[in-house]
Design a protein around this nucleic acid. Structure first.
Lengths: 103, 103
DNA sequence: CGTATCGGTAAGCTGTTACTTACCGTAAAT
DNA sequence: ATTTACGGTAAGTAACAGCTTACCGATACG
């Protein structure tokens, strides 16, 4: 839904949302079931899911009156590849710095 | 400095800190130089760097009166591997769901 | 139909975050 | 030794994030 990295990282920065994602990684679930295990209210879970959805990290699949949430692997992969590029550049900078120190 | 994912993701969730990281990925830099290009004050940059440092994403190297900041590849890699595991589980869940839909 | 289940939205409170300016310590340079 | 450069910390403020309760629409079920 979105290619903005900031939103995705911000979304995963919250411990509760991280927990939701880990639960959803195990199996897709409706909102009520997700909320059942947590100490926060169901509306709070809905709000967290909205954030995750806007960040492109989950998808919804309506099934009768239930809204089943799934992890969106595309969103996770976008973060992965972003970090990959990032990491490469960081390592390159380190090598460069190391070589300069050699002289 | 820290193995907590939440802190790292939270840190990268802020657009300003993302920008700082991308600048530092190109080359290590002192605080003043980092602040020069931005629209926010130098103390604000210091505060952001503190967050990044606590998240284990940057290291400092004192050089005279300058504090040179570097990306810490270990921190970045920790996020990468966390996402890797995460992504794997998400894909597995998807396969499982797809198989169930087949029946 | 009416009623229950499910879940998203609104309004409001509270703690936290990102910024500012002002200040202070430390290292180098004159 | 004074001055300049650099950068971290303190205090205060304004915006924002996360929570709650109350409410409402929509599907399924009697």
């Amino acid at each position: 839904m979105n290619t903005n990295h900031s939103q995705a990282f911000l979304a995963l920065g919250d411990p509760t949302r991280q927990l939701l994602m880990e639960r959803l990684a195990k199996r897709p679930m409706p909102v009520g079931k997700l909320a059942a295990g947590l100490s926060i209210s169901r509306p709070a879970v809905s709000q967290h899911l909205k954030v995750l959805h806007n960040a492109g990290l989950v998808t919804v699949q309506q099934e009768g009156t239930r809204n089943i949430y799934h992890i969106d692997p595309r969103g996770v992969e976008a973060m992965r590849t972003y970090l990959d590029r990032f990491w490469d550049r960081a390592l390159a900078a380190f090598k460069r710095a190391a070589e300069e120190d050699m002289e």
